Simulated scan of single mutants.
Amino acid sequence: MTLLFLVLLLLITFTHALPYCHKSSKLTQYWIPKEGEQDMRNDGTSIRLGGSKTKKLLTSNGDIIAKVSESTFEKFQMEGTGLLRSGTMVNLGTDINSFIKLDRTTAPYGLGTSHGLVPWVSVASNDIKKGSLLYIKELDGLKLPNRKIHNGCVRVDDRGWSLTGCHIDFFVLQYKSYKTLAATIPNHVTIKISKTCIIQDYVTDSVKKWAIL
């Protein structure tokens, strides 16, 4: 067996294998904070995203997209996406202090690393290959807030600036969904790569209505 063949074999194995710790991976949830709605501070306490607009959402060029309250700014920054009262949706730009306006026709629920996020399908991970189809047995059979039943199949569509290794973030669209699912989904789950996973559509009319304003 040549050295080149061994190197290629190791590369292929590394690319398609999960780190061993994903047998018990940390699971968190993220969502789109909506200006004016109830949400949660980073310390877990409840807050409404409103108040004096003392913070500026700036582009990487320094242009002002909008002025928002400090609590709204912090949530937009933490979750990576935010929806303004005006209907404008913003996403983190080149760093955690800059933002971009999103085209709602192509990314109605926020932007991942390469394309739009999909509610209850997209997950963020920093140590699993982007685009990987994953099967999470703890999500299989889960009743979602819109009464649809999850089949356990998700896709790596995003990265997270605050994520550690062996940690995935499940995109659940809104804070209300997080509150519903937090008592149901365990904090650690078992993850497997599955090329046969079939991604389902969990978006209903009520979901579209919430996102549109």
Results as ranks from 00 to 15, higher is better:
Leu133Phe: 15
Glu79Lys: 05
Ala124Tyr: 05
Asp127Ser: 12
Thr106Ser: 14
Leu92Val: 11
Ile96Val: 15
Ala107Thr: 15
Thr72Leu: 05
Pro108Glu: 01
Leu134Glu: 07
Leu83Lys: 08
Lys53Trp: 01
Leu142Arg: 04
Leu111Asp: 07
Glu138Pro: 09
Lys130Arg: 05
Leu102Glu: 04
Val90Asp: 03
Thr81Phe: 06
Leu111Gln: 12
Thr45Gly: 02
Pro33Glu: 10
Thr88Leu: 13
Lys137Met: 13
Arg85Asp: 12
Gly44Asn: 09
Gly80Leu: 05
Ser52Lys: 08
Ile64Arg: 13
Pro119Asn: 00
Leu57Tyr: 15
Gly51Phe: 01
Gly51Ala: 05
Leu142Trp: 07
Met89Asp: 12
Glu79His: 06
Ile128Gln: 06
Ala107Arg: 09
Leu144Phe: 09
Lys143His: 04
Asp63Ser: 15
Glu79Arg: 03
Cys153Glu: 08
Val68Trp: 07
Pro119Gly: 00
Ile47Tyr: 00
Ile65Gly: 14
Asp39Lys: 00
Tyr135Asp: 12
Glu74Arg: 03
Leu142Asp: 09
Trp120Pro: 00
Ile47Thr: 08
Gly62His: 07
Ile32Thr: 11
Ser69Thr: 02
Ile96Lys: 15
Leu58Tyr: 10
Thr81Val: 13
Leu49Pro: 02
Thr72Gln: 08
Ile32Pro: 02
Gly62Ala: 10
Ser132Asp: 13
His150Ser: 10
Glu70Thr: 06
Leu102Val: 02
Gly93Val: 12
Leu84Arg: 06
Met78Phe: 07
Gln38Val: 06
Leu111Ile: 11
Leu49Phe: 02
Asn91Glu: 15
Ile96Trp: 11
Lys55Gln: 14
Asn146Cys: 01
Leu111Lys: 13
Leu139Thr: 03
Phe73Tyr: 15
